[in-house]
Design a protein around this nucleic acid. Structure first.
Lengths: 118, 118
DNA sequence: TATCTTTATCGTAAAGATACGATAAAGGAA
DNA sequence: TTCCTTTATCGTATCTTTACGATAAAGATA
């Protein structure tokens, strides 16, 4: 992205793509699912489950925190992570609005019957 | 991704992250929404709407085609794109399964009450 | 045939994402 | 205090994404 054109898109689309980007790596999806299953858990438990190094897990957790999907609190020497329920509901809502917009988008025949356009 | 560890995650998580990656750029969200609004349209119409160059739009369209969300057919000198309704339904379904799994994931108090773990 | 229009692809540059080892930071245990 | 455990961060390497100009490809048009 040479000069980052992101700002020139609509806020709605930027918002949606940000949610999507948070989910755009299997490790982050796995982290979220793990947190959901255990209700909450320390970083170490996630590291054990995933096939990646501790530093990498920590980095993915940071991204999820920045996306707002996960909250982390310090628990003595370790730290406890859990899902942000409101954010997840918000994300699900936003994406479902998109899915509704896209539903029934193509009439299948609309392509082959158009010879001209513009 | 030095040696791409993607294969080591579960198929479910890889699948979800692939859907998400397709939506992880505002241009691609905008393209999908444009296609939905117009039912189908030629590449040139999309280029006019978006704040990016024609080559870049073509590249995003290619990614959407590879993700399976969009179908393209040649229409004389131009080409006609439209949404793949089944794929979009599938994507919406997959992601909503995830959202359900994540719903109610954190009891809020679960962090501060845990002193030990592992 | 020569030319125009439209789109895909190539080549390339720059930014971002991903991964990991090493190390710092901070609380708990001895 | 000293050491251990746990996690975040730094530094770095590499791959991927994004973007664009230039050009090729292919049908329409004159």
């Amino acid at each position: 992205m040479p000069i980052t054109k992101t700002e020139q898109f609509r806020a709605k689309e930027i918002r949606l793509s940000r949610w999507a980007k948070a989910l755009a790596h299997p490790a982050r999806v796995a982290i979220l699912r793990t947190l959901a299953k255990r209700n909450a858990c320390v970083c170490g438990e996630i590291v054990e489950v995933l096939p990646i190094a501790q530093a990498t897990v920590s980095q993915h957790l940071k991204e999820l925190k920045e996306a707002g999907l996960v909250k982390g609190t310090i628990e003595g020497p370790s730290s406890c992570y859990c899902l942000d329920n409101e954010a997840i509901t918000e994300m699900a809502g936003d994406l479902n609005v998109l899915f509704d917009e896209l539903a029934g988008g193509c009439a299948e025949a609309s392509c082959s019957t158009k010879g001209k356009s513009k």
